[in-house]
Design a protein around this nucleic acid. Structure first.
Lengths: 365, 365
DNA sequence: ATGAAAGCGCTAACAG
DNA sequence: CTGTTAGCGCTTTCAT
């Protein structure tokens, strides 16, 4: 393949040879002019041939295509984008909570990422992945501001609804996975958290549970809505919510463990837990068991997300399933809608209570 | 912000107004010429000011910087890259097994992704994430071939060591997370799978276990090495490996469940399981329990990865910890080394057996 | 059917 | 210290 470089006329070879920074390798990549020279045509023809223009001779088109393939030449997307003033990249931004220390590794995120990646691929778009400090969500606009991406998909509102509104006011094309908030300027796609929380707790109450703990960070809009659902279900059954049973916590397993321990140590009675993620739920169950409490006999547990493990856990976990796959697709559709200039409305995806064994029929003491 | 557009001279405004495709919004993004006009200087000065060139007047520099900030102007990275012939993007490619249907959602991948993202961010590089069919790993080179990325980090060799060698022969700057294979032309970074498998099984044997099942897809180089470690430990203790105890399976929870059921149904005796991922191990434990088998009393279990849940599972899971965080950083370091033209050697990261409760002291029947 | 030339947004000589 | 100019790799009029 090296000999190819010898074909360069007008000093191109030398030009390439000189620049040292970072990549002797990167410099060697061949470009359209090389293909043109090898094929004995102009770059215009190569360009047309490679883009399948009907105007070029079929025979030359085939010859050029074959040549390009044989040397693994592919059009430089950056240059093409610049010339065409287009861009086929979407930024997906995953916030991380620097404070809670832990890096997200909840399976939920990966599934969401995968689902977005698929939807983007289907449309021929690339995905630029970045992480931002959950306290500085405004940084999510950077890939857009720098022209790296045509728009942004942000996974979660976290604690900064306000910052997101600012971005929207700035007209950053953006769609956010999360909860629909009043007076929100940006487009959200999310599950029906309120219904999810309500259904979970309704189910627990139906089982005869009365002291239902809530595990989750109420500062997050999504969790707040699940909590609202929790309260509504309690109220509907004339059960007084007990603040001691509402335990704020990030999506970190260690917190669920600590919470269960704490509840038990403080001798706060509870006969059920509604946890805002399956990882929290599973951790809670393990901790209960260590403390000699049976699930579901002593404590019934409902999780959230329906991750892969949920069905295979012992006992199989009752949980609120989020339509993650639909979520990714919906997020992407919504972003393109926004890009097309439409005023996209927030979308709420249905949520489904998957009843398995951690919530069993009424106890028969 | 609209008035800004009125400043455009020589027909720029019209030019922008015309192009309809995809993004009326995208077209509006302002550029260096706009800033120059607003500041009453040339684009060169803006360019210099924004890149912090010491040659420009401090007062103008500050003024321009402030102006740019106030209108959220950021240099167009695409154009900059083209001009500079540089590129600050690395492609991270995650293969998916179209055959086994399931999309990866193993927490392991997300942690690895996060760790790579951090290492890349630290170096000021962006991350382009893509998925490829695990049967067509050669497609992983696309982001490089199209000039989108300077290099590629591939997560896993899967079944196509050969395709990767081809890419390496083509000089695609690439680093692969996986096992070091004989005659490998590309650089790998991976855990010491052999030692990991050996340690896990040595531990089980030390506990008095003799019939140790192996759960994992031996077709994958990494798993094959863990299996080799498994065999070595058995051999060292003069235990004959029983092929019936080696159960091939993808990293999918359902498979672990089926395997345990099958072993029990076929009345194949076993007193331990070494599973190639924590998700498989946890699923196996849950299934054992459903079948009335105690862990670790009847069956001891060792997992792999040490994901977050492992410590919080009940019983807490004994597992082989992979240095995932170090892994991401090492992958990135290795890629830059390759980009710098060095012949980077494969790196093997240490592995650590984390003993928890699923492997308890010898049974006292 | 093909080529020459201009220009996408930016930076870096080179002048002044 | 600042502006003018050329050109990164590509596409697309406009000629031929």
């Amino acid at each position: 393949m090296m000999p190819v470089l010898r074909f360069h006329g007008n000093g191109m070879a030398e030009k390439r040879a000189k620049s040292p920074p970072l990549s002797a390798a990167a410099r060697q990549r061949l470009q359209m002019a090389d293909i043109a020279r090898l094929a004995g045509v102009s770059t215009s023809t190569v360009s047309r041939a490679l883009s399948g223009s009907p105007v070029v001779n079929e025979e030359t088109r085939a010859r050029i295509a074959e040549l390009a393939r044989s040397v693994n030449y592919t059009i430089n997307v950056g240059a093409k984008n610049l010339r065409l003033q287009q861009n086929r990249t979407v930024a997906v931004v995953v916030p991380y909570e620097a404070a809670s220390g832990q890096h997200v590794s909840d399976p939920f995120f990966l599934r969401m990422l995968g689902s977005i990646a698929d939807a983007l691929t289907e449309r021929g778009f690339d995905m630029l992945l970045s992480r931002v400090d959950a306290e500085r969500l405004d940084a999510a606009a950077l890939p857009y501001d720098t022209g790296r991406a045509v728009g942004v998909i942000l996974i979660g509102q976290w604690h900064h609804h306000d910052q997101l509104n600012e971005l929207a006011a700035r007209q950053v094309p953006m769609v956010v996975w999360g909860a629909h908030m009043p007076q929100q300027l940006y487009c959200t796609v999310g599950s029906d958290n309120f219904a999810g929380g309500d259904a979970a707790v309704e189910h627990l109450i139906g089982l005869g549970r009365r002291r239902i703990a809530f595990f989750g960070d109420i500062g997050l809009p999504e969790v707040a809505q699940r909590h609202a659902g929790y309260r509504q279900a309690l109220t509907r059954h004339r059960l007084a919510p007990d603040p001691k049973l509402v335990v704020p916590m990030a999506f970190v397993a260690a917190r669920a463990r600590a919470a269960v321990q704490d509840l038990i140590n403080r001798k706060i009675e509870f006969d059920a837990i509604f946890a805002c993620s399956d990882v929290l739920a599973m951790t809670a169950i393990s901790t209960l068991r260590e403390n000699g409490r049976q699930v579901p006999a002593d404590v019934a547990v409902v999780g959230y997300d329906d991750i892969e493990m949920a069905a295979y856990f012992n006992p199989p976990l009752t949980t609120v399933r989020q339509a993650i796959d639909a979520g990714g697709k919906t997020l992407v559709d919504a972003l393109f809608s926004v890009l097309a200039g439409k005023r996209e409305l927030p979308q709420v995806l249905p949520t489904e209570l998957i009843i398995r064994s951690t919530t069993a029929p009424p106890r028969t003491r």
